[in-house]
Design a protein around this nucleic acid. Sequence first.
DNA 1: CTCCTGGACGGTAACGTTTCCAAAGTTTAC
DNA 2: GTAAACTTTGGAAACGTTACCGTCCAGGAG
Lengths: 350, 350
Amino acid sequence: MPCGEREVNPVSETFPKHSESARPTMIDVAKRAGVGLGTVSRVVNGGAGVRDETASRVRAAIDELGFQRNEVARALRPGKKSSSLALVLGDLTNPFYATIAKSSLEVAGQDGFAVVLGSVDEDPEGERRAIQELIGRQVAGLMIVPDQGDHSFLASAGIPVVFVDRPAHGIEADIVMVDNEGGGKLATDHLLQQGHVRIAILLAPSYYTTGRRLRGYRRACRAAGIEVDESLVVQLPEGTAEAAEKATRELMHRPDPPTALFASTNFLTEGVLRALREVDAEPAVVGFDDFRLADMLPTPVTVVASDIAELGRIAARLLLDRAAKTDTRPPQRIVLPCQLIQRGSGERPA
Amino acid sequence: MPCGEREVNPVSETFPKHSESARPTMIDVAKRAGVGLGTVSRVVNGGAGVRDETASRVRAAIDELGFQRNEVARALRPGKKSSSLALVLGDLTNPFYATIAKSSLEVAGQDGFAVVLGSVDEDPEGERRAIQELIGRQVAGLMIVPDQGDHSFLASAGIPVVFVDRPAHGIEADIVMVDNEGGGKLATDHLLQQGHVRIAILLAPSYYTTGRRLRGYRRACRAAGIEVDESLVVQLPEGTAEAAEKATRELMHRPDPPTALFASTNFLTEGVLRALREVDAEPAVVGFDDFRLADMLPTPVTVVASDIAELGRIAARLLLDRAAKTDTRPPQRIVLPCQLIQRGSGERPA
DNA sequence: CTCCTGGACGGTAACGTTTCCAAAGTTTAC
DNA sequence: GTAAACTTTGGAAACGTTACCGTCCAGGAG
């Protein structure tokens, strides 16, 4: 029960409200310091070619007036892009995306860049619109965790693009991702080693990553000389925990349930574990992507993990270098390794 | 062990790279459509006062050229702020912040606003710098989860500000928060009802919210006629799970350990639970703020929760209305209720 | 003493949009 | 048939910055 209704009160203290007073411009500073506009600009941009005495007079004026450069006007000049990057990704509530956002934000911030988050619907058309919006804001570069669909419209945007976690079709651009196929193989190999033969794999719909992880799974099975039972390859209608829970329940109620499950995303892993609570059998479980509290669950969860924060950092760094034209190499494809973290759930024998 | 070193390969496909070709401007559109510049602007902005026939000719030209309005130039005009909001908050890896980011992003997106995330260091000076940066980008409004310290410098920013989760000093602005004191009382009351008398409370350092939650705790104790043992009020040096874990371990190894713990943030709850794994005693635990998998832990975790997504939505809505001058009420103080979610850990008897 | 060189500085155009004003065209009213 | 009112349109100014081009002054070389 609620501990109170929503309250709405005017705040009582009487502090200055935000004033509409115009903020000072370089012209104001110039007048105040008794110098020309160009000189102020030079001081603000590093002060090369300005006498120390003049420069400090200008700086004094800046402090007195509380002047701050108008980034919008600055970005209007041709060639000058705004000092911000755009980041387009899915549900921030997913720790995977949140981690990318956080780490790329850090790197961008170090270079004085802000990060603009476009709101992302799930449909490709929404993504496209969001991206166009962002481009209109003259960002210096785009980091995109792309949805499926054609992204060739990005080629005409005139700004560098880095794809994160998955490649996109129709454009040649940098891509930073994890070794999905290797990770899928790693997880499956591990389960095979425990003697499992009937290993189910749960897949979120139509992501690129999904296909690669499945490929790793198949490769591991083939290498072990095991033929894949296609009824154990479960394509979910949604990438949610709920969908995985339902599918797992169905799997485990079959006459010939799998003895092990490979959940190909963190949310799917959660769903699998939820379903298994209500089931007598204790199949082995390996998840893809680590998640908070994985080690605290009744049976600590074995996962295949990679350094997601690094994913974001590399992407941001690469994009900044592209934007600054420091990096003029051909488009790169950077693949981060995965590693297996054994915690218990994946070590149950067949 | 890693399933492979980091690979770096040039991408092989040969798609168009991003071209540096200048994007078309309204002037190009005007020429193409054989109309004046002003007419194009009118069409782009809704088309009021333009003949249908002319408007469609302009729209045709826009489509042909792939014109997209330059938001930067637009924002340069006086009075016109850019159609973006700034969001300043802490660690996105904390689901609490991530949820706020997600929900405010959604609301802003509905109104065609982008959200700029300032990178936030933990120190107040870093926060101030980040905010100044954002203001320089001419955002239409600021949403801030404020650090302690004086925020009066915001009064001269000339844009509306909404504080989220905690108020700030030195400025009269809207604030959207949860009923921390009520939640603290709710949690403590619940533990008292189970017969607990020695209830420890763990507090993250110096947050505003911390103080209110403690106040609710004290109020509940006083109402129950119990004198608070001040050695059970634990001020942590850091708001991390690790700090809470260490403190809990120390608490439980005392000769007179508490029979219940109230962890005042989600990370602290995690730390508490980690420590309790290695302890024989099974004290009751209530956490503040719900978290993913709370119901999946060996003992499902009882929490006091509020609708964090709603927090973000309300803040964004309010800010948008302020920015549009649709809402000219005096600064509001909106307080969302908390509710108790009983899952087991909080129902252990004394 | 004059000329030249170079650093310091001031002024102005330009970026792409919105807004305002005036001109042109069209309808309505008398 | 003419004047008035209104609608549609074109053009120019302005937003705040940067980049470029001159000008000015000091100092060194001839």
